[in-house]
């Protein structure tokens, strides 16, 4: 089946089987291996990407369901070569050890901060509660998200057309 998914702003057209999962479409068809494939049961959250501006677990979404929609992956977090504050926060606060859960953690964190720019620790833990860090590095993950909240990206100046 022919599908076109806009991934990180780029329309990508491929011929796929309907049973292909979005996580494998991203990794195997588009070589976007930043999205990790973990538990396969929608428990661990390693595979979280945005589907139309909302984080979802891509091991439990069919690629064909994303056709005609927008997907954002960890590769799409940076802007013009500048890392997203969430990425900087994970770097500054040692928010990762093995790094397997990190892409999913960061995608959900960005979504949280867009909705709630100054979240409490409890709000961060709640937002990330569907994601597992098997290094158990949760303390530093929460600190990383707080760091990002305290160091928001400078908004580009509004240009009047």
């Amino acid at each position: 089946m022919n599908i076109t998914v806009t991934v990180n702003g780029q329309p990508c057209t491929r011929d796929v089987e309907p049973r292909l999962l979005l996580v494998h479409f991203l990794r195997d068809e588009l070589d976007l291996t930043g999205t990790h494939w973990g538990c396969d049961t929608s428990n661990c959250g390693a595979c979280v990407v945005w589907l139309d501006d909302v984080p979802v677990k891509s091991c439990t979404v069919l690629a064909v369901m994303a056709s005609g929609r927008e997907v954002r992956t960890v590769e799409g977090l940076e802007r013009d070569g500048e890392l997203d504050p969430v990425q900087k926060g994970f770097s500054e606060c040692h928010g990762l050890q093995c790094g397997f859960c990190t892409p999913g953690m960061m995608m959900t964190s960005r979504w949280l901060l867009d909705r709630s720019p100054d979240p409490t620790e409890a709000e961060i833990r709640e937002a990330l509660s569907g994601q597992i860090c098997r290094c158990t590095g949760y303390e530093n993950i929460v600190r990383s998200v707080r760091w990002a909240a305290e160091h928001p990206a400078e908004k580009p100046e509004e240009v009047t057309p």
Binding site: S42, G45, V48, L51, V54, P55, V56, K57, T60, V61, T108, E126, A127, S129, G130, Q131
Partner: peptide, 9 residues
């Protein structure tokens, strides 16, 4: 019910 990301879907 489940977690915030699952609830999105």
């Amino acid at each position: 019910i489940a977690d915030p990301v699952v609830r999105n879907r």
